[in-house]
Amino acid sequence: MSLRDLAYQDAANPWFSWDYIRTNSSTILDALGEHVTLTAEAVALAMVVAVPLGVVAYWFRPLSGPILALSGVLYTIPSLALLAFIAPAVGPTKSTSVLIGLVLYALLLIVRNTLAGLNQVPKEAQEAATGMGYGRFGRLIRVDLPLALPGILTGLRLATVSTVALVTIGALIGKGGLGNLILGGFQNNFFKAEILTGTILCVLLALVLDLILIGAGRVLTPWTRRAR
């Protein structure tokens, strides 16, 4: 390839192209769908594991140190290393490998914020609940968890936004949702339009999901608005 060809190629390689989006809409939508599915599954699974862990850490004080430390260590391990541990065991072509890594990452953010939320529940409310005859579980479900909801939602938002960004690393094994577009564009002769489309959709997805969670939080915690 001569230098002139390279220069020409550069001229015909815009950062944004409606034409690319039109002709590849099904690929883009598939990637977006995979991205959304992976994010939703990862955050949902992380919630199911992390909120009970947060409650355990809250009920049994001596356990809160080890639980936070363990999820902290999991968080410190680089995502690529996690993928390298998980993929050979699970199967490199399955999105499950990516999913497990994402769940382990989201874990710390949700556990920590759940615990912080539970710690913020006013002592008076708890004593009142106990005085009204609530047992441990009843108080947890009816008093502690609802009052800890702002903290839990903060964790959920952080986890969702960072998971959306993190899904892209799955592109290394072809299971990265929009990351496939980003990395694919780079490997496909530096196709800028494909890279930027993937990136923009990724950031937009994070923004939209964050706004949805903020909205859900406002609906679920009406008292935080009335207080102001």
Binding site: I169, G179, T199
Partner: peptide, 12 residues
């Protein structure tokens, strides 16, 4: 920065 994928910056 939380919302920007690392892979995106590395490729762009």
């Amino acid at each position: 920065t939380l919302a920007i994928p690392t892979v995106a910056l590395l490729t762009i």
